[in-house]
Design a protein around this nucleic acid. Structure first.
Length: 279
DNA sequence: AGGATAGCCTGCGGGC
DNA sequence: TGCCCGCAGGCTATCC
């Protein structure tokens, strides 16, 4: 399930594989998968792929003429960069295909956007400014840079559990279920602790661990649980470093007692009641 | 108005 | 073997 580290890995590898290439043709297999203008032009047809951005779990591609598309992977979204003539491992549920060309016109392969569960999508904008004012303005600061003060300012007086706040993209952008649990475990704070009961220093600790866990996960190529794959179809490696996610009932890596598992904000949540007081 | 909840969607694993 | 159920969850809409 792509969270910030997975999206960042996709962004950077897509950038190195396709930056400077032009879009020869766009094939939108499912009309309802694209939002905004669905014209080939709006989906960057005929333009050169110039910059690749990310904010939280969303990424954007901006063309040389200034048009921007926002790509959201949702739960099961996969972006694959295929060399010319190559066939994808799985062809079903592919909703958008960008056929690419080198500046001299030679074919340069394809970008495939596959998303079985269709929680993701493509949003088109006439400019990056429009993408910012219509969409990214609703996001909190990016998880790699967010400070304790950022989180406290947006959620500090809330009666919500801290984990529910961390999953809220308007509070901090890019944290999902995996990295929320991992960060709170490292910070030694219960996911059930109410935001309004936390002190400034605890927000700082949480933010510090979020930045650290996300950066570590990017280095490891993200977490592959089921669907997530790199743009060359390879799995990530950070799932081997998870200390709590997916480990309910198994021993805590710090104190050895069995990790607790329960539900918070409709999400499976794993924590150590010994090492994470305050719930 | 903030916060909790339902629903979208497919694949897969477990139980019978 | 095959079917059905529950679960996975990012995000929006809706309800309380």
């Amino acid at each position: 399930m792509p969270e910030l580290p997975e999206v960042e890995h996709v962004r950077s590898s897509l950038e190195s594989a396709t930056r400077g290439l032009s879009v020869r043709r766009v094939s939108l297999k499912r009309r309802d998968y694209a939002h905004g203008s669905r014209s080939p032009r709006a989906l960057l047809s005929g333009q050169t792929l110039a910059s690749f951005l990310r904010r939280g779990k969303q990424m954007a591609i901006v063309s040389d003429s200034g048009a921007a598309i926002c790509l959201h992977l949702g739960m099961s979204g996969q972006l694959t960069a295929l060399p010319p003539g190559a066939r994808p491992a799985q062809a079903d549920h592919t909703h958008v295909i960008w056929s690419l060309a080198h500046p001299d016109g030679r074919p340069a392969g394809r970008i495939l956007f596959r998303d079985p569960r269709r929680f993701g999508g493509v949003w088109t904008f006439p400019s990056l400014d429009e993408l910012h004012t219509q969409r990214w303005c609703r996001l909190g600061p990016d998880g790699l840079e967010a400070t304790g003060a950022d989180i406290q300012a947006r959620a500090g007086s809330s009666a919500r559990a801290i984990k529910a706040a961390l999953l809220d993209q308007a509070v901090i952008a890019g944290v999902g279920n995996i990295y929320a649990d991992e960060s709170l475990f490292r910070a030694g704070i219960s996911p059930f602790a109410l935001c309004r009961d936390l002190e400034t220093g605890q927000f700082e600790e949480i933010a510090r661990h979020i930045r650290c866990v996300l950066a570590e996960a990017i280095e490891q190529g993200g977490s592959t649980i089921r669907d997530y794959r790199h743009t060359d179809d390879q799995p990530g490696a950070f799932q081997h470093r998870h200390r709590v996610y997916g480990r309910g009932g198994q021993p805590c890596v710090i104190c050895g007692r069995a990790l607790d598992s329960g539900s918070l904000a409709q999400r499976t949540t794993v924590w150590c009641s010994g090492c994470q007081p305050g719930g």
